[in-house]
């Protein structure tokens, strides 16, 4: 499917990433009219497994993949629709992203890939296929990076980036995240169900946001850029991160090993995100969730410069 409508800077500045559909995010993010979809909805490649559960299907199985231009340069892009089955990975959904990353692996000269995450993780009704697709995506992603492709993840959708989505995000070259962009493996309800409300109260939204939300991820180094909830902010971050993202090699992984080891040493005994932020040298750590993006970014950059070399 193609879309050639013009896009104005005004639209990019005023459109909420969180509120937009996957298709609108792609259309507004990329250079106007440049997107070409692979296996679009008209191909009707839907999940073969949802009939068994009498569940409705979506024509694109909840993910849009294709090619377009950003700042005049070609790239591949994939966008998950977080409102269809929570953006979860099923067989077809996952295979579309795997195929795109394998193309990135095989494209010379290498071009970047953007992944617009919006997912609760693996789709329950096709759990084995979904889980396996996560692993296939991670392998293809690493192969693409090894071939020189920068793979940048953008996270700020309704369903956040949970479960296997969190693992794929951790495999990317760089990540931009907004306030809404929660990144985690086990979701709040899953932890509460398995370990009890004393371990994690999933109804305590403030706890969820400060533990898994974009601000904490930026402050501990789990994401490289914290951005406003607009298409324009994600576009600017994508352009920056494509430039800065590191290559995939042994040196990078050694740097990441050191980065994660240091995190454990410095913050391993912290009981709450606020304790981490205080130890990062932020004077009024409790005020962090309420800061404007500008004020937060200034504080975050002072506490912890983005490294761009260890992911």
């Amino acid at each position: 499917m193609t879309d050639q409508k013009t896009v104005t800077p005004f639209q990019r500045h005023t459109s909420s990433w969180y509120e937009s559909s996957a298709r609108d995010r792609v259309r507004l993010l990329l250079d106007a009219g440049s997107f070409r979809e692979f296996i679009g909805p008209e191909a009707r490649e839907m999940s073969p497994h949802l009939d068994l559960f009498d569940l409705p299907k979506q024509f694109d199985d909840g993910i849009v993949v294709g090619r377009g231009m950003l700042g005049g340069k070609p790239l591949f892009v994939a966008a998950q629709e977080g409102r269809f089955m929570g953006g979860a990975f099923g067989e077809v959904h996952g295979a579309k992203l795997t195929g795109l990353l394998r193309a990135a692996r095989d494209t010379r000269p290498a071009i970047p890939v953007l992944i617009l995450f919006d997912t609760g993780g693996v789709r329950l009704q096709e759990a084995n296929a979904g889980e396996l697709s996560i692993s296939e995506i991670m392998r293809a992603l690493v192969e693409a990076r090894t071939a020189g492709a920068k793979v940048v993840g953008l996270i700020g959708g309704r369903s956040g980036c949970y479960g296997g989505g969190g693992l794929i995000a951790g495999t990317c070259s760089a990540l931009a995240v907004s306030e809404h962009g929660r990144i985690a493996v086990s979701g709040p309800e899953v932890i509460e169900t398995n370990r009890g409300i004393e371990e994690f109260d999933s109804k305590d939204k403030s706890l969820v946001w400060r533990t898994m939300g974009g601000r904490n991820r930026r402050l501990i180094g789990g994401a490289d850029a914290f951005v406003d909830d607009t298409i324009e902010a994600f576009r600017a971050a994508a352009l920056l991160l494509i430039e800065r993202a590191p290559a995939f090699d042994l040196d990078m992984l050694k740097a990441e090993q050191a980065r994660l080891t240091e995190r454990l040493q410095r913050f391993g005994d912290c009981a709450d995100a606020v304790d981490i932020w205080a130890r990062e040298g932020i004077a009024d750590a409790r005020s962090v969730p309420g800061l404007s993006t500008e004020a937060f970014t200034a504080i975050a950059d002072k506490a912890r410069e983005p490294r761009y070399d260890a992911r």
Binding site: M1, S21, P41, E42, P56, Q58, F59, E81, R83, F84
Partner: peptide, 18 residues
């Protein structure tokens, strides 16, 4: 040649027009 609106979610629907 074609267009699509909406999303398959509770209380919602998608319409593909060709």
């Amino acid at each position: 040649a074609q267009a699509i609106v909406g999303v398959v979610a509770s209380g919602n629907l998608e319409v593909l027009v060709e």
